[in-house]
Design a protein around this nucleic acid. Structure first.
Lengths: 116, 116
DNA sequence: TCCATATTTCAATTAGTCTCGACATATGGA
DNA sequence: TCCATATGTCGAGACTAATTGAAATATGGA
């Protein structure tokens, strides 16, 4: 995981359709979604979707598996975690005060919530 | 903090010079670095640096303050934290299993280390 | 005021990205 | 084999971003 990989991953996520596709795939874990279904839900032509999915796949953020005629894409959560971690380390390494409050913010979002 | 802001922030960081400049500013908190000093250290022309700094400033990731003839830029860590948090929430909201291991990975990088 | 330093803005070129029609490939069934 | 469905690849046009020389602005000092 070097800086070039981080740039590539950030570039991949810095585009509306791709970010939305990735988010959609995250919420559909672990089943995944077919390429055509993603295109339909995000209202983009199938070939446009295909291009974006290829870019996300190249970064390792998602992966596709053929199942007869459809190709089911799934989010690679651990890859996303690695990228986020690398990015955060650049802050935390030099600045622990950036990371500690981040964690305390993350705790409520990661534990099963009841009302809030 | 909406999706467009996230896209803008990711775009800002998805460029070598800008990511390096941001990292450099993070490590120079809380003193900051002058525009010209950043250009020198990253070996880019001063006007190129200026353009990149303007892009980072627009996203709120950094901010500059004039001090006599130099303009000192500083990283806005809390802004970075907000962006990271928003991005992670898209995972954590649907997938707590993405976030919990991330936190355990972050703990060693945020606490004062002794050997590891 | 005049000059030197620090930084930004402008303008133009170059390079890269996004989009999508048209075509190609892959699979399954009649 | 032939057709329908699902997805990917190609290529062209439109758009956006990156780079940098030259000029402009801002500050401080002689």
């Amino acid at each position: 995981m070097d800086e070039l990989e981080i740039i590539t991953a950030l570039t991949a996520l810095a585009q509306t359709t791709r970010l939305q596709a990735f988010k959609l795939l995250v919420t559909h874990e672990p089943n995944g979604l077919a390429s055509g279904e993603l295109a339909r839900q995000l209202e983009v032509p199938h070939n446009t979707m295909s291009t974006h999915l290829a870019i996300l796949t190249r970064t390792g953020l998602i992966s596709g598996e053929r199942q007869s005629r459809t190709i089911t894409y799934r989010a690679n959560i651990s890859r996303f975690r690695d990228i986020a971690l690398y990015l955060l380390r650049d802050c935390c390494g030099g600045r622990p005060d950036a990371c500690v409050p981040l964690m305390s913010d993350l705790i409520p979002c990661c534990t099963p919530k009841e009302t809030a």
